[in-house]
Design a protein around this nucleic acid. Sequence first.
DNA 1: ATGAAAGCGCTAACAA
DNA 2: TTGTTAGCGCTTTCAT
Lengths: 329, 329
Amino acid sequence: MRATIREVAREAGVSPSTVSRALSNPEIVNAATRERVVRAAQRLGYAPNRAARGLITGRTGNLGLIVPDLANPFFPSVVKGVQAKAREADYAVFLSDTDEDPSAEAGLVRILAKQVDGLILCSPRAPEEEIRALAESTPLVMANRRIRNVPSVFFDNTDGMRQAVAHLRALGHQRVAWVGGPRTSWSTRDRVRGLRAATAAAGMELVVAGHFPPYFEGGVAAADLVVASGVTSVVAYNDVMALGLLSRLRDRGLDVPGDISVMGIDDIHMSGMSSPALTTISLTKEQLGRAAVDLLLAILERPEDARKVRRELPTQLLVRASTGLARTN
Amino acid sequence: MRATIREVAREAGVSPSTVSRALSNPEIVNAATRERVVRAAQRLGYAPNRAARGLITGRTGNLGLIVPDLANPFFPSVVKGVQAKAREADYAVFLSDTDEDPSAEAGLVRILAKQVDGLILCSPRAPEEEIRALAESTPLVMANRRIRNVPSVFFDNTDGMRQAVAHLRALGHQRVAWVGGPRTSWSTRDRVRGLRAATAAAGMELVVAGHFPPYFEGGVAAADLVVASGVTSVVAYNDVMALGLLSRLRDRGLDVPGDISVMGIDDIHMSGMSSPALTTISLTKEQLGRAAVDLLLAILERPEDARKVRRELPTQLLVRASTGLARTN
DNA sequence: ATGAAAGCGCTAACAA
DNA sequence: TTGTTAGCGCTTTCAT
């Protein structure tokens, strides 16, 4: 068993409260005493029991993170960002994966809620009202989704899609297809909205191929529809799907980017390793995680302005050397 | 604030102890009373505070998982396995990522130790003695590493390497290179050992190219050495590195598998999507996670036989259709 | 079968 | 500046 505060107190010849103070409020205790306590603690390998502390302070020092699918390389990056920032602030992180099941989210939130000071929902798929209800009872931050009156960090998809369209247009494309992700994904909705606006403004034609699973296989599945639509370029919901598109297009004997150009979103590590390397809208994924923690800590400090807190992160077109985008006509 | 056990007690017209019993030891309480308690709890949305419970039972219902690098697709799979199994057993999971820094591991273990019932160290890079010392003070399970007298789940690398060599030999290869991962990785050591044995038994020549970072870039870095060594085939520490090899070999104008055959280990999702698709030694990664949780729960039940607990998982050669392995001469 | 009381390890009033 | 006391929410003796 671990050393308790009482043992440290005895070892240092002071009361437990003094130990407590010396360790968590060093300034208010005599320097010599503090020194003695710290050494005693060290000698005994003491570290406070966070659960016991939480019981009285009402703070657990823990934070929860829920993601739809760790197998999608987007999410591990976000998790790393969350971890890094959380550790800096001396928080530990509970992680849960919903396997892309929207109905699992609320349950996980409720389970975790009691053990954490706050939760980060990354790309949650649940309906808005459900999430808003959860946010009533638990400090909550949305990452990669924007919900009014719920603290949110999200990417500027509108600008991202504008960059994408500007690039395609500069290359001479007139018709572009959109391969969407899950219906339940806010990003899908936000991106297609941005794409609509951008193509309209540029006088280009947009073909919406529909919704597909956000996996490699989803991209594969979408490819034939895209080809049939006769576009010269396609933007996919994410890089993994774009790689699926690439794969299927190649299997059908199409030349990328000669016959059709493919663009992804996310800038996952692997996207630079395909051939042709994927041109993509790069997202600062770790930054998303870090920002989410920032927001969460902020609303823990001042819960009263939780409804106002939000943060938009930039997106950046990343044209790869052996680009998947070619001039048409 | 959440409802407490006292409020439920009042609502049900019983004492707190009865509520406690009704909820965690239903048999020992009168059916009618139990019913009343359960309904009161439901009405108030009560759920016990796990921290408070843990304080007295000594069990937190939490478990910790430490991985070297979530950006390596191997680890998210393991994490998913751990999550799934943990959730079944009603455990929540703390996750930490060390960024491949062996010296960070002990610190994280110590931080998490107090908040969990047990820890899973996945592919830990720390020295054996250090880990053995940690295992003295905390219930610990090693995943993907074998340490004597510490509960371990690991893959049968020896057999995996035998399968790899048998396949290469069947294709006519006589010289094979090994591209190793971090020195600190048990898998690197175990695999090269297996490879030595298998090549010797098969009368083949093994060239050990050395140690490289377990990233795509590591594979890229190793490629030129491999080419210079004049082998006709190469086995990489993991799929990510194998993809790096593939990339660099292609850049140098070499034909894979015509000029040189490449084999990976892990069977990450992406390995089936490269071209040529990667032949690999497939590992049951989620199974590794699930088995680690199993072991952990077992030693929590019966700490006395912790030293005996271990589990070996099979490996399976996976020859991809558009394989990276060609017959030489 | 149920209630009263004690206490897990810690921090926060309140005294001194 | 330090010690004493009380109590966070829960479970678990020990009575009844």
